[in-house]
Design a protein around this nucleic acid. Structure first.
Lengths: 196, 196
DNA sequence: TGCTTAACTGAACAGACGTTCATATCAAAG
DNA sequence: CTTTGATATGAACGTCTGTTCAGTTAAGCA
């Protein structure tokens, strides 16, 4: 067993993933070739197959990695408090997490249709698990009367759409800081679901 | 000049556009080949070039057609009233218009990155013209005190994102009618931007 | 210094890609 | 009934696609 240390694999592997993520985000999965990814890494196309079974796995692994990270980060957060407090925590978490990973977010919801059926089901399941957390909060709030929503399922999707939309325009060098954006969105979400 | 009447062109032309729209919406521009479009129409690939200069023009014409239709339909609507009334009109119009054209909506905002630079600028300009209408309403409402928003530009984008998100889940055979969906979204938008 | 093996190259594969074009078809005009 | 020209075919083009693989390189262990 040679080369367990200082192996290029430890370096090239992540570089392949990063290059694929950037290119998929910028041009779309179908529009990016394995040779483009290889060129970005500085390697020949054949070498990529030391790090991924095929192009589809490259996409799937990126998306599953992102969703796993999302759910893990969310699980490591405080889940207690009033519905309003929990909604605030969720909203701020969502904005912050997504602003830190614009490429992964973009790919994870733009490239769903390019997943093979089995892979799609996996990602869809993870996404639903995340959305269900928000729906639970909204339902609890409706029960206690602090929220007022005609349909908590639609409200969930509407809030998620609004929040995730932040990645389409936010630039870290822009006019507003991430903290400001977080506050602005929280104000709007709070009002949108509140009673009265 | 022969064949001004009964020409196949009057039939095939629209069929090409429709087939392209459906396939682009389902699989994405880059993943759809000219031969697939041709097969959907029931024709050989070469025949498509009687109706479009190239694949890129096919996409651009679909998107420009959609944006033109959007702005024209919006222009044919009442624009007067209080900011709250105008916001309601805008919201209901947006939901209704987008629910009627799920494929065109989907393509028009998923395939922006596949537009050639010059074409992108055109579509982006039309989109901004539409968004500016909403921003004007929000600004007027903030001025008169009926709305309360930390940043009207971000509020504009947040509302648009929320509203457009409806197309990702709405199915006409689903649990809710279009009118119900319209009402639910209007409730949320109204509360989200209102003072207090 | 040799041996082993992970890491990579570079060529090749069969097929699909967008696009072009000479040719065929055939309904309407004269 | 011949001419016309819009409409479509089907083959061909050069290039690119994802993927495979025998062969080369070089780093770590003995």
């Amino acid at each position: 067993m040679a080369r367990t240390q200082g192996s290029h694999s430890d370096i090239t592997g992540p570089r392949v993933q990063r290059a694929a993520l950037e290119l998929f985000a910028r041009h779309g999965y179908a529009a990016v070739s394995m040779r483009q990814i290889a060129a970005e890494v500085g390697v020949q196309a054949g070498a990529l197959y030391n790090y991924t079974a095929d192009k589809q796995s490259l996409l799937f692994d990126l998306m599953r990695g992102h969703m796993d990270e999302l759910l893990a980060a969310r699980a490591g957060q405080p889940q207690s408090g009033s519905p309003l407090q929990r909604l605030e925590a969720f909203t701020r978490f969502h904005i912050r997490f997504h602003l830190e990973r614009p490429d992964a977010v973009f790919v994870s919801y733009m490239e769903l249709r390019n997943l093979a059926p089995g892979n799609f089901e996996v990602i869809e399941g993870l996404r639903r698990a995340y959305e269900d957390q928000l729906e639970d909060i909204l339902r609890d709030g409706v029960r206690t009367g602090v929220f007022e929503l005609a349909d908590s399922k639609i409200a969930t999707l509407a809030v998620i759409a609004m929040l995730t939309g932040v990645t389409t325009w936010y630039r870290s060098a822009g006019r507003l800081s991430a903290a400001q954006v977080e506050q602005i969105y929280w104000d709007m979400v709070r009002k949108a679901v509140s009673a009265g």
